[in-house]
């Protein structure tokens, strides 16, 4: 970028940011909104918590979100792969499972996750079906995230597997590799490399959707902010929760973009063969 262009873009950025801030600052009820959403004192209490007033530390509650998505990510990767594999298998005996996998991905990509959360979180315990109905809310929440996101991730995997040229499969077969070996040694390594950026994209969504599980009474960051809001009549907690989510997702978003750009360069450089 030339010097003039740099100066011009800095000036226009400053101008636009300034205008936005000015608009909200000068809004007729701006001071009121600032009090409700950006109160420094509430901000601090939300961050650290106050046991004497039964107020949660959102930072501590956020740990729940973090370990939930870490656990769910691993399970989603495994379960989604299984779904995609079934869907692409050509073994006649697996035909019913292939259809089931197709229906599964259609259904769970089509239902809003909050509805699945209700169905699993209230429906399964309500059935009184023994062990499976006696799990903790957080188990049902994780199950919901895994069930829903596996459907998305299965489609990502499937796209990746389809992107591997047929010649690779033929070469693997002509070496006498079995179907499973062909998948494991030839298709998957190439497919996964192709779909890492979209996979990370889904994981960013998964991280954010851990904020929904509070509806089952689990005290995670969003729910803690909700509790604070209803007790103190101040919503700064939501701002705190939002900032915590951003602190987690922005590095991942940047990293994903970096991978996409790198992959693009690699393809452009080596695209000839």
């Amino acid at each position: 970028m030339g010097r003039r262009a740099a100066v011009a873009s800095s000036l226009s950025s400053a101008l636009i940011v300034g205008l936005v801030v000015w608009f909200f600052w000068r809004a007729p009820n701006g001071a009121n909104v600032r009090h409700f959403f950006l109160d420094p004192h509430s901000f601090w209490i939300n961050l650290t918590g106050d046991p004497s007033r039964s107020l949660f530390s959102i930072l501590r509650c956020f740990e729940t979100n973090v370990w939930m998505f870490m656990l769910c990510e691993v399970l989603v990767l495994i379960f989604g792969l299984g779904l995609a594999w079934l869907r692409l298998s050509r073994t006649p005996i697996l035909a019913p499972l292939r259809v089931a996998s197709a229906i599964y991905t259609d259904v769970f990509r089509g239902i809003p996750i909050i509805l699945v959360l209700f169905a699993v979180g209230y429906g399964v315990p309500g059935m009184q079906a023994g062990w499976i109905s006696q799990r903790t809310p957080i188990t049902y929440a994780c199950a919901t995230l895994v069930i829903t996101y596996s459907a998305y991730v299965a489609e990502v995997y499937r796209a990746g597997m389809n992107s591997v040229p047929n010649g690779q499969v033929m070469a693997a077969k002509s070496l006498g590799l079995s179907d499973v070996q062909t998948m494991r040694r030839v298709i998957l390594p190439q497919a996964i490399r192709n779909v890492i950026p979209p996979l990370l994209n889904d994981f960013i969504s998964l991280q954010k959707d851990t904020a929904l599980v509070g509806t089952l009474g689990i005290v995670e960051a969003n729910q803690a902010a909700h509790v604070f809001g209803s007790m103190e009549f101040n919503y700064t907690g939501y701002t705190v929760a939002a900032l915590l989510f951003l602190a987690l997702t922005i590095p991942m978003t940047r990293y994903t973009d970096h991978l996409i750009a790198k992959d693009r360069r690699r393809r452009l450089a080596g695209g000839a063969a």
């Binding site: 040229p165 010649g167 690779q168 033929m170 070469a171 693997a172 077969k173 002509s174 070496l175 006498g176 590799l177 079995s178 070996q181 040694r185 030839v186 390594p189 190439q190 490399r193």
Partner: peptide
């Protein structure tokens, strides 16, 4: 296919494996 091997017009080497691993894959895995 372990006994009847085919070589293709488009080579179809495995791009994610080194030259050596390409050659070794069949004997080691199949």
């Amino acid at each position: 296919r372990r006994h009847i091997s085919i070589v293709f017009q488009a080579f179809n080497l495995f791009p994610h494996l080194s030259v050596l691993d390409n050659v070794m894959l069949g004997p080691v895995r199949a």
